[in-house]
Nucleic acid binder design. Structure first.
Lengths: 164, 164
DNA sequence: ACGGCATTGTTGACGTCGACAACAATCCTC
DNA sequence: GAGGATTGTTGTCGACGTCAACAATGCCGT
């Protein structure tokens, strides 16, 4: 459908009524409206934006947060285990942990039983940083509730946990 | 918690019952279990993986698909409009459209009214490619239904449309 | 005990993507 | 006509996912 060709100049007054084409009508999303992936993607981006903004004070990204949480809850696990549970490549994890080590948040001890593995741990600083991160992340999470409504929030969390 | 120290050798038969430490017990997700963003992220990645796999035959990424759909449903719109509706930076869009142009799927006509704008259009080839893409995307979408269950699928789609 | 095979961590390289700055051309408004 | 905003464009940077290769180590059957 052509963009509503404007009436053929019977009223030459005011070339265009509200010419501010600031939002040139509404743009049709077409079949994207029927694709869950599109909305899930937009939602995920929005969530991460808020998360990143709230944790910017302590400079912890969503991925770093998930890494710290898993290490904190599973002391001594290996990098392979960490990566496979979070869906992060071993190679990627190496550089991420290198950075967290340099920041003094984590450490890699030699595994007692397996010479290939590293036993991952949080340092003291890492534990306190994780505590702060959890507090900020909880605020972030709480901010989602009013946006979704408590019912929808519960529904979505339950649904996603079920399919993950 | 140490990894369930194995029974102190009363039965020397078979050094370890199921020694395949393939998944060394279950790893605790900790507070990630209470974070919607974590599951939304995992879900989005899984969805995109399936989408990419199904559309690999015609070499169309999720982002490219969304761009083609929007152009197809809103012929003549500008790059700025396209970018702002999809949440893609103008700069990023320039290179994406450059590629789609080179592939002969889209074209940038000079806007009649505004010398700065380009009026975006699908070429004939772009229209047929979009048709194929829509068909494959519909199959992808249909595959989500059994994984979620029809009720949860509807709930989630409605909820996300409402908050987007 | 030994040799082949798998696993683990590591490094290097590549491509994609989001973000930002700068710029020229064009439009808009006073 | 001048100043300011918009649009498309280019360059650059950093974060990521991905793949290949490698050394060290563990595991296994013969």
């Amino acid at each position: 459908m052509p963009p509503a060709k404007r009436a053929t100049a019977t009223l030459p007054l005011r070339k265009t009524p509200q010419p501010k084409r600031v939002s040139p009508a509404v743009i049709d999303l077409g079949v994207l409206n029927e694709h869950l992936g599109y909305f899930v993607r937009r939602f995920q981006v929005a969530i991460f934006q808020d998360f990143i903004r709230r944790l910017s004070r302590i400079d912890i990204s969503p991925a770093q947060f998930s890494v710290l949480v898993i290490i904190g809850a599973n002391e001594g696990l290996s990098q392979s285990e960490l990566g496979s549970t979070l869906g992060i490549e071993r190679a990627r994890l190496v550089r991420m942990l290198h950075l967290l080590d340099k920041r003094g948040l984590t450490e890699r001890l030699p595994s007692s039983a397996d010479g290939r593995r590293h036993a991952l741990r949080l340092t003291r600083a890492g534990q306190t940083t994780l505590k702060q991160a959890k507090a900020l992340a909880a605020q972030h999470e709480a901010s989602l509730l009013p946006k979704l409504g408590p019912e929808r929030y519960r529904q979505m969390l339950d649904a996603l946990r079920a399919v993950s």
